[in-house]
Design a protein around this nucleic acid. Structure first.
Lengths: 228, 228
DNA sequence: TTTAATTGACAACTTAAATTGTCAGATATC
DNA sequence: GATATCTGACAATTTAAGTTGTCAATTAAA
């Protein structure tokens, strides 16, 4: 389910942050500050979420199972996250951020030709999905239709991907910057094509070699750069 | 959530079909046979589902609300459907079937050129989405991530769409039939592009005129037919 | 060694929705 | 007009999960 009444946002009431019973603490434990320990626990939940959502699926995973996976208990889950959905968003952001950074690094690499950049970008995208199927499952399937909030995250990520496509295409064909109300169409189309081909590739068990997939999609991508 | 363990299918135990208390009935009411009345009620639920799912959304719609919308009560809902999910599948199929038939009619129309067929096909696809926003919302957004079963329906519909794209492209470039393990890639890419552009178009309130969208996507489609 | 905060295990509570059941009133047949 | 089926309203039950609360065991500081 994706929210269409995009203007209406229901603000979530911030949880009471689970303060320790007595206020003024900050004791060191296991050689770490309280905030460090909390950070570490948060990280464990992120890893547990990737594993559980990516292997058994979001809907099939309960809070208790997540805690077991993380080796922690419910109280610590609610220390760092408001809900299961909240954790999913955090996991998704982590994944998407990483891919974005990889992609930007490739764009910034001045030592390669434009065509090589396209191939490298596509290789980074599809390669990541192949190398960590949990990652693939979460970002391609599990985030779909969870809630209005997750939908917004998903659409924002798609938008970001379209923007990266635009930048890459813009480098390829310097004069092509569309300005009009239809400038979004081609990048959105490319993004949709990449995501959908990735879905099928994953569902079919990565049955096409990475190199071949990259080569083919590179040709498609390049053919598109002509449109304006 | 999309099921990846595609081989495991949990069969649903068929409901007891809600037989009338005494077996051997078949009385006529309001001038109709029992089966006709049941059919009519089923149809009301299909319409109510399209309206409710398409306007308020699948997750936000409860069984009771659905019954109110249909002007019937729970017992009749369970007469025709196993669950809310079951109704969603039925609504989705209804929508997809109709679009498929439209598309096939266009393919069969011998009086037009191939290029005109492409434009007509795209116009049918995008036009339907614009003319009934409920339909658009259900088929583009609401079916995502509901359950493994709905995911299978969705992926089957995408597969069908890819097949139609292949047929259309095959007519355009007669010699292009790929046979290899990678033949699915380009049609899947086209399908993903169409669906994703449609999503953005709907979310942005149909801000680009239909004609312009069709013209632009037609050019993209045609450029693709060259790939093999 | 003593003490107080922290942690882990798990039970208890809460919530929300689907599903089933009851029964009086409506509708056609005979 | 009498009777049996069908229908609609709505209460009762069931189910399933998230969320909160309790308490003993653990860990580090003093």
């Amino acid at each position: 389910m994706i929210i269409l009444t995009t203007n209406i946002v229901i603000l979530m009431k911030k949880k009471s942050q689970m303060k320790p019973k007595s206020e003024n603490q900050g004791q060191r434990y296991k050689g770490m500050e309280a905030s460090e320990r909390a950070e570490e626990r948060r990280g464990k939940f992120l890893m547990a979420g990737l594993e559980a959502f990516g292997v058994r699926g979001y809907a099939a995973t309960g809070i208790k199972a997540l805690c077991r996976e993380a080796g922690l208990t419910e109280r610590y889950f609610y220390e760092s996250f408001d809900s299961k959905e909240d954790l999913l968003c955090a996991v998704y952001r982590m994944i998407v951020e990483e891919q974005k950074n990889d992609f930007i690094a490739i764009l910034a690499d001045a030592g390669t030709t434009h065509r090589e950049k396209v191939a490298a970008g596509l290789r980074a995208f599809f390669g990541t999905l192949r190398d960590d199927p949990r990652n693939a499952r979460v970002q391609l399937f599990e985030v779909l239709g969870v809630s209005p909030r997750v939908d917004r995250e998903y659409l924002a990520a798609m938008q970001m991907m379209s923007d990266l496509v635009s930048r890459l295409a813009g480098e390829l064909v310097p004069g092509m910057h569309h300005k009009g109300a239809t400038a979004w169409i081609i990048p959105a189309g490319v993004t949709g094509a990449l995501v959908h081909v990735a879905m099928r590739w994953v569902l079919n068990g990565y049955d096409v070699p990475l190199d071949e997939l990259v080569a083919r999609m590179t040709r498609v991508f390049l053919s598109w750069s002509d449109f304006r």
